[in-house]
């Protein structure tokens, strides 16, 4: 069990080699893969997420830890698949129709991946159909939408409506500079986050 704590520590330090070493050791010790994932990798990334949110660390440092997490995941994934353990959740994410801004969305993707989510990024300028169809195909827990323009944020509503029509039960989470919690409430989106750090918390909360 000792190794699990060390996995989190190495991950917080952003040391991919150490993370791999400890994950390997834990697997050899026959620690339950779910425990390695939850109490090692994800616990470590949760610390990183909290530090980022508190402005204690910078984006590139978060990404270094996320990379370390992925190197641990590579070892763990075959075992997780065997035992039927899934990622924390699956999110389908994109920028809405008419909008080409993607940096914010990309950052949210990286943070979610880092936090143990399976992320399906459908890109920019995406119509409602592609959000909903992809979500159904991927059996997604969450649909994430980004919009940076007041002219395109209105397109989010169509996704919410189409999801209802198509019986897609993924929760909807939105973000982007001009958006607000009240806009999310208005269109019936269950989650809104003003930045990437909060996006992870909100997504986790939707599960």
């Amino acid at each position: 069990m000792g190794c699990v704590k060390e996995i989190a520590g190495a991950l917080i330090a952003g040391d991919a080699d150490e993370v791999k070493k400890f994950v390997k050791a834990a697997v050899e010790d026959e620690v339950d893969p779910q425990t390695i994932l939850d109490q090692g990798l994800i616990a470590g990334m949760d610390v990183i997420g909290a530090k980022f949110k508190a402005s204690e660390i910078y984006v590139p440092e978060v990404l270094v830890s996320a990379r370390a997490m992925h190197s641990g995941m590579e070892l763990l994934e075959p075992l997780l698949a065997k035992t039927g353990v899934r990622a924390r959740g699956t999110v389908v994410i994109g920028t809405v129709k008419g909008d080409l801004h993607d940096i914010g969305k990309n950052l949210v993707c990286m943070m979610l991946k880092g936090a143990g989510w399976k992320v399906v990024d459908i890109g920019v300028d995406q119509p409602a159909e592609s959000f909903v169809e992809t979500a159904q195909k991927e059996d997604a827990d969450v649909i994430g939408m980004s919009a940076l323009l007041t002219t395109t944020m209105v397109n989010m509503k169509q996704v919410v409506e189409l999801a209802t029509i198509k019986d897609c039960n993924a929760k909807i989470m939105i973000g982007g500079a001009p958006l607000t919690q009240s806009f999310a409430d208005e269109i019936g989106a269950q989650g809104y986050a003003p930045d990437a750090a909060t996006a992870v918390e909100v997504a986790n909360g939707l599960l």
Partner: peptide
């Protein structure tokens, strides 16, 4: 600069 703490432009 993108501010790497807050991600604002």
């Amino acid at each position: 600069q993108m501010d790497m703490k807050t991600t604002i432009s």
